[in-house]
Write a protein that binds this DNA or RNA. Structure first.
Lengths: 215, 215
DNA sequence: GACCGCATCAACCGATCGGCTGACATCCGG
DNA sequence: CCGGATGTCAGCCGATCGGTTGATGCGGTC
């Protein structure tokens, strides 16, 4: 090695809406070499404010946040903009296609599952600080599967239809809600069924909730 | 006080399917006086086996467990039986009516949210060890609200119907799946609609997913 | 300009759903 | 022993759904 002294520690900001989990992570990470937890946030807004003030190298972000801003939005806000923001490492419970996609599109440097072993977490944080991507094995799997057989994505209009559907509305009511004719609603529904691989409205709602296509 | 020496520490068993959270909790609790983490389990089955071997005073149980046995079942198994088993303190993310009810029915001594402050967690663990009940404030709120205006609860059979409904099955298919007649399915569905306050199957699925009445 | 995806609409038809009434058996607690 | 809750089943009917075919207009892209 050309380095004789240890490199500066990674400055880390925690963002998770569960205080217990946050405290647990802080306690856990304090035992890891080269990682300094410089702050914790319980909401997306707090994370943005603290990041601006503390200039951490890495933000460890949970995607599921209570209240206003969700983790994806917070990630986007942290990484957008011209100046070099912090790297965002997503740490979450779910390896859903939609979650992974949105997080990566939002600028996340890595995507880890909470089911991962703790030393993987340490390694991923250091990797993220160096700008390298870190993915949990199941996440990487899903990405590759996706690339092999690209999933049809719902159009914006189809999402709106789906949202109304999930409220239990009938075709006529959906039509009125969106200012279109009943016939159009049926056309959209047919396409949605096709894309989601279902045959009924209930099935569509179930799949939509499953893949978190709806708020 | 009549005690001049500190009481024996609480022997605690962790059960959570996320390794990172588990490690975090262990690290966090190691800083608390009078609490000894004697083991961790990642599944319900593991929790039962370890509890039998380690005889912990308290099991800290997550309700959402991957794989076979869910947290409610594990709790029931731990607390049922004639001999004095461990106290089970539920630590979970959701303060849903259904979750709370089922956990308490299964024999949980307390119900804490992961959003709680860490020192509340410490206090709750000591309370549970002493056999006292510990509830997070939002949980207690919900229980009281429930008592004031009792919600209609779905019967076991209605839950099964709902589960099939959420798979997108038609009445005939649900009937075949549950070995009953189509007429019966319709009868159940009608009652489910009434209890959930909806008028369509899609609405029922949406509400069910909302209230986490389904796995 | 031709092509294609997306959104829009119409009309039709068979299958299914939702609501209704009424019935019977079981089980449990007062 | 009787009521209440639950689970089971039947028949009826209007409303709705799901699928189909076919058509129009609009915005991009090659």
């Amino acid at each position: 090695m050309s380095e004789s002294v240890s490199p500066p520690p990674v400055r880390l900001l925690l963002c998770d809406d569960h205080a217990v989990v946050r405290a647990g992570l802080r306690a856990l990470l304090s035992s890891a070499d080269g990682i300094d937890v410089v702050g914790e946030a319980g909401t997306g807004e707090e994370a943005l404010a603290l990041a601006a003030r503390l200039c951490p190298d890495v933000v460890l972000m949970d995607l599921q946040l209570e209240g206003g801003m969700d983790g994806v939005t917070a990630t986007r806000r942290l990484t957008e903009g011209p100046e070099a923001g912090p790297r965002v490492l997503v740490l979450t419970m779910f390896d859903t296609d939609a979650d992974i996609t949105r997080a990566i599109e939002a600028g996340a440097t890595g995507y880890l599952l909470k089911a991962e072993r703790p030393d993987e977490l340490f390694a991923a944080i250091r990797a993220a600080a160096a700008g390298r991507t870190a993915l949990s094995a199941p996440v990487a799997d899903r990405l590759l599967t996706r690339l092999r057989s690209p999933r049809p994505t719902l159009s914006a209009r189809e999402h709106e239809i789906l949202a109304q559907l999930a409220r239990g509305l009938g075709n006529r009511e959906i039509a009125r809600a969106l200012f279109i004719s009943e016939a159009t609603v049926k056309t959209h529904l047919g396409r949605i069924y096709g894309k989601l691989g279902v045959e009924t409205r209930s099935g569509a709602v179930a799949v939509a909730k499953e893949r978190r296509l709806l708020p």
